[in-house]
Each structure stands twice: as structure tokens, then as C-alpha cells.
Simulated assay, not measured.
Amino acid sequence: MRVLLSLILLVMMVVSSAISEEKLLDKIVLVVNGKPVLKSEIELAKEWYGVKSDKEAAKKLIDQIILAQAAEKVGIHATPTEVDNAILRLARMNRLGSVNEFKKRLEERGLVFSLFKDLIKREIVISKFVHIYLKRNLFEGIEEGKAVDLRKIRLIYLDKSKPGFNEKYEILKKLVNKEPFDKLAKEYSDDPVTAEKGGLLGEVKKGDLVKTLDKPIWEHKVGDIFEIDTDKGVYFIKIESEEKKIVHQEPTGEEVNKKLQKEVELYLKKLKENAVVEYIDKSLEG
């Protein structure tokens, strides 16, 4: 799976594509965990992933959306600057002088620039997700780099859109400071990736997570359990420990990439077991 943006950029060939120049009539063809997917996004995915069939493009897009949603649930984000810089690199790779030229070229081919930005944002978020969740834990690396403060975080996420939210919230309010946090996470958390690990997000440094989570995590002290309310859900956070560590340089190479790809596939499989995908266009199913 091409989850690292640097690898994905090498295969993106927008200028030489053969997409019809006739502007697409947009309609919703899929819904992935509540997120509508448009026909134009399928066309964009065909271009991005280099596949010919709508069904194959839909499969890859579903995987991308599910992974990005999992990352966002635990506070991983991509800044507008990161997205803009990635698109600028793409423009230059395609021998275009600016993002505006790149945007114009996309729109000439019937592709929606705002949807393209969303796709790039998801790729960046997934790349960070892989690094924080998987690569740091899979490989010890070598002791090179600088010392940084890392906090070990556990979380319980309650999705406001899911049935039973109020009941689970009231239960956790009563028990979160009395019962083992990892046990409560396994039983009540709506984030399947961290739930099976007792809510363990892993070690994070300042700036790793979205500001809504990052700021209070570094304002509280080790041992604190606290609540963060957002539009989409409620987080119960536990700061388990803090250490100053050398940021390791992870090993690279074909063998490492194979291990990482396998780990991503296992995570995605677990996420898909809990995902809800509705096929409005039945030809994309299967």
C-alpha cells in the first residue's frame, strides 16, 4: 500500500492522463462511515492510483478514507501548509510553475481541485498515522537524532453519532477514575485500533496531534485523566508517562517496507471489519 506521500508522488502523472475532458455530472456513489463519495472522486482515484476500472478505484478510495478516518479519530492531522506544499511539489514534478497552473490543468480534465486537496490531505494524515502507530513501534532504529519529550498516551473515544453515546458517556464519567483505564478502553471505546490495545495511542511529541488534543495533553501532568469534548466525539485521555528520548532514525530498505506494508494491511483489515460502506452505485460493489 502506498501510504508514504514521498512514494505516492513518484507515480502521479496528471499531465499524461487519458481522462475525458468532458466535465463529469457529479453524484454520490458511495458512503463510507457516513462520508459521501462522489462520482468525480472515483475518476480522481483512477488517476491517482493508476487503475482503469471504477470498481478498483472505489476499493482503493474506500481503504484510504477508512485509514484517514482512523487517524483523525486519534487526533492526527495535516495542516493547510503541508497540503499546499505537497501540491506544489506535484505541480513542479509535472513541469508546471504554480499551484494555480496545476489547478487549471486538473479542471480542464473535469477533475475537482477541492476534492484533489482532500485526497492529498488524507495521504498526509495516513503517512503520519503509519509513523506514529506502526513504524515507531516496529523498529527500534539507531541512536541518532535529538532528545525530545515523549508522552505515552491512552485514550477512549466516544463517537457522538453512534447509538448509546449518552449511556456510555455517563458510565465512563463515573468509572474512568475508579476502574483500570485500559479495561474501560477495551469495553467502551469507539476507536477499534486503540481499543484493542487498551486505549494505547503510543508515544507522542508536541505537535504530533491536532491542536484540540495536543494543547491539553501538554498542559496536564503525568497521571492525569481528563476529558476533551469535540464536535464529533468525546475523548477521555490518560497521560501514562513522560520520558526524554533520542528520536531514532528508523531503518529503511525493501525488507522494512515489506514489514510496514504488512502491518498496515493488518490494521486496515481490522478497521474494515467495523466499517459501514453503502454502495449507492451497485456496480462498484464486490
Rank of each mutant, 00 (worst) to 15 (best):
E140S: 13
E72G: 08
I120H: 01
G75H: 00
K152M: 13
G110Y: 01
V29L: 03
Y49R: 09
K39A: 15
N177F: 01
E242T: 12
E265K: 05
M93L: 15
R89D: 14
D231Q: 11
A275G: 09
K259I: 13
K244R: 15
L4N: 12
I280F: 07
I239R: 01
Q261F: 07
N100E: 15
K272A: 07
Y267G: 11
E187T: 13
V256Q: 04
V256H: 01
N33C: 08
K282I: 09
Y169M: 09
E43D: 12
V11D: 15
R109V: 11
T194D: 06
N137G: 14
R151M: 00
V193W: 06
S283V: 11
E22L: 08
G97L: 05
F116Q: 02
G286E: 15
L268N: 02
N85A: 13
E22T: 13
V276A: 12
V83Y: 00
V148T: 14
D191W: 00
R95I: 09
V256W: 00
S98M: 05
L268Q: 02
V130Y: 04
E43T: 09
I42E: 03
V234S: 08
K238C: 07
K46L: 02
V37A: 07
I171G: 08
R151S: 00
K206A: 15
I280A: 08
G164T: 09
L96G: 03
Y279D: 10
Y157R: 10
K35D: 15
K205R: 14
